[in-house]
Simulated assay, not measured.
Amino acid sequence: MTLEDLTADVEDAYGDLDGTFGLDLDRETRTELAMLVAAMEADPEELVRRGIHALFRSTVDTGDLDFQLRNGYDVTYDEYLMGMSYDEMAGGSQYPQRDDDRRYQM
């Protein structure tokens, strides 16, 4: 195979992506997906599934998912998987909260 063959396969894959997904792909995403389809001879939908898995794994591994979850929900991914917060796991919620206003009154 030659560079011309690859170019033709990418252009064919690019054209075949019209209407494949229920969302609009920008030009860059579409070109990258077409290159992957041509190079890997894979179904575009399978490549999108793989891409989602890769993005998810990457955000978990780098801590980005925990950062986003902590900002939005005040939990981490591990807490989500366990179904309880770290405080609950450590027994921090079993003691009553202190009443600081009455703490030093006798």
Rank of each mutant, 00 (worst) to 15 (best):
L36S: 06
H53C: 11
R102K: 12
L69W: 05
Q94F: 13
E45C: 04
T62D: 15
M35C: 07
D101A: 15
A34P: 03
T2K: 05
D26K: 00
A13N: 04
F56W: 00
V60N: 01
D18T: 03
Q105S: 06
G22S: 03
G92C: 07
M35P: 13
E28D: 06
Q97E: 15
R102P: 08
R70D: 04
P96G: 03
A39M: 13
A34C: 06
Y77E: 03
E88Q: 14
L69S: 07
D101E: 12
Q68A: 15
F21P: 00
Q97A: 13
G72N: 11
L3E: 01
V37R: 08
L69P: 02
D16T: 06
M106T: 13
T20L: 06
N71A: 15
D64I: 00
Q68H: 12
Q94V: 11
Y77I: 03
S85L: 12
R98C: 01
G22M: 01
V75F: 13
L25N: 03
F21E: 09
D99R: 11
M84Q: 15
M82F: 07
A13C: 04
A42S: 07
D43R: 09
M82R: 13
E4N: 10
R57Q: 06
T76R: 00
T76C: 00
G19I: 01
G91I: 14
G63M: 08
D64N: 06
D87S: 15
T59M: 06
E4C: 01
G91V: 09
M82Y: 07
V10K: 11
P44C: 02
F67Y: 12
V10Q: 10
D66V: 05
V48L: 10
E4H: 12
V10R: 15
E88D: 06
Q94W: 10
D12H: 09
E32W: 07
T76L: 01
E79D: 13
V75H: 09
E88S: 12
L55C: 02
M89P: 01
A90L: 12
E46A: 14
Y80D: 05
L6R: 10
M106W: 12
S85R: 11
M106V: 15
T31P: 02
G51Y: 04
Y77N: 04
A42T: 00
E28I: 03
R102D: 07
L65C: 07
L81D: 13
Y14S: 04
V75Y: 13
T7Y: 07
L36I: 00
L81E: 14
N71M: 10
Y104Q: 11
D74I: 07
V48S: 01
Q105T: 14
S85N: 10
V75P: 02
P96C: 03
E45V: 00
T76F: 09
Y95K: 15
T29N: 13
P44L: 02
D64M: 10
T29D: 14
D101I: 12
F67D: 09
T62A: 11
M106Q: 14
L65S: 05
M35S: 11
V48Y: 01
D18M: 04
A38E: 05
L25Q: 06
Q97I: 05
G22N: 09
G91E: 04
L33A: 03
E46H: 08
F21D: 07
L3H: 08
G15S: 11
T2Q: 01
